[in-house]
Design a protein around this nucleic acid. Structure first.
Lengths: 127, 127
DNA sequence: GATACCGGTATACTTTAGGAAACCGATATA
DNA sequence: TATATCGGTTTCCTAAAGTATACCGGTATC
């Protein structure tokens, strides 16, 4: 591992940029799964317990069945939520966070905490 | 505040859905500002200290100047970052988190924490 | 018999996000 | 003189996100 003039030019003032790069990778992995308009809202909804399809849709204003269906599939694929089908007539379906999905609770908690403060700020500012 | 038959049908099993709705609003406000592929990565980068335009771009692989420029403007508008122009020749510009922007550190911390565990999981699974 | 609910799907569309590449004037460096 | 750096902007483009609306079979309710 040698340090060349070239490298120095690239990081003149902040030699901790290696640390930044190292932190970036996990953050990117998280964002790959969680980013988008709906996913965290859906996870938040499931945080309160298992929910049925239409129930989630009712709780989250603006969420269309198409988007909800798509997002739930992705949550399943990523191991964050489970889908349970009950043999009623007509069938009832419940969605539920997996144990792994529940590990997102602290993150959701922080998001809510910050959002609450932010909401106060923008409301008092009038926009 | 009266409870009608209609309302009961809409919330048959989970009467805490009001609580869910209440939590949803701040979360949405937070997501409005923070969602997208780059914003949290840029904020993370600025967490380590003030940075110059190209420096941020170098630290975040794949980030084009167009996107960086756009995202930085939005961070400024939302009061999360400041832009300082120094009268050198050619001008140098530094970006820095505001005090308010720094309140995002716990959230970024959780994102990093969860991302780290998640990264381990997907790597050991092979994708 | 009409309507509403369930868990979605299908189609068609608009909007936004994001990417690739070239370019700018000014300056420093080789 | 050629090249690279700085902090971006401009143009053109694609892919994804998101919206609107209608629809499905089955059942319960009015």
């Amino acid at each position: 591992m040698e340090t060349t003039e070239h490298d120095k030019r690239k990081c003149p003032t902040h030699l901790n940029s290696g640390e930044c790069t190292r932190m970036l990778l996990p953050v990117r992995d998280a964002l790959d799964i969680l980013s988008g308009k709906w996913k965290l809202q859906i996870i938040l909804s499931l945080t309160f317990g298992k929910k049925r399809f239409k129930q989630i849709q009712r709780e989250i204003p603006g969420l269309t069945p198409k988007m909800l269906s798509k997002e739930l599939k992705e949550l399943e694929i990523n191991g964050l939520a489970d889908r349970h089908v009950y043999d009623t007539a007509p069938v009832s379906v419940e969605y539920e966070l997996t144990t792994y999905g529940k590990t997102l609770k602290p993150l959701i908690g922080e998001l809510h905490k910050w959002g609450t403060k932010h909401r106060k700020k923008i409301i008092q500012q009038g926009g």
